[in-house]
Design a protein around this nucleic acid. Sequence first.
DNA 1: ACGAGGATGCTCT
DNA 2: GAGCATCCTCGTG
Length: 211
Amino acid sequence: MELNNIVPLPASFFARPTLEVARDLLGRWLVHEHPSGVCLVGRIVETEAYRQDDPACHGWRLVNPSTGKVLPEGRAYDLFAAPGTAYVYLNYGMYWLLNVVTEPEGVGGAVLIRAVEPIAGLHFIQARRPSARKPYELTGGPGRLTMAFGIDGSYHRRPLTGPPLYFAAGNPVSEAEVATSPRIGLSRGTDRHWRFFVRGNPYVSPAPRQR
DNA sequence: ACGAGGATGCTCT
DNA sequence: GAGCATCCTCGTG
């Protein structure tokens, strides 16, 4: 894959309302120039939005509802970092989940990258997902995606606006192809339909039964 | 096809 | 100690 003409999406792309960014990331490319020298590219087909006014967001507790002041404490404070910053955390003790911080610095928000469709580096991806038998088992699901792309906690708080890990323009998705649903795996904020995905795409993770 | 249950560690109460 | 923005394996139908 020739990377000379791939231009990273700038921080201004992410300094917008979180729902807008989550929707706009569909069809864009996630690019990882892996330390091994392999270049991995995936077309984003599923995202979720998390906002500071949202009980499912890690940063929710940090905001004083009456004053609007933000407590600069704990992991979740990193959701208030500069737009385009990585927010990577370990969930269920085993899986790294990749988010990109949104909104202007000081406002909490992030988009969770939930699924991509492989475009380059398929051999590498398959080697990291030996049990995959269906497309979505390769790179569909936020934990599977980071395993397949070799993304871990070492990327936390690093800028996603240039190598080695960044987004590229790709081909935006038309409105007709976009579907929404409640977010997956939550016990709070389930009334908000802030999951965005490409309708019918085989790499979209199947929604599990409700908890 | 579907559901139950286990793995495993960090954050917050 | 509880709760997790998950995934995998192994039952049963």
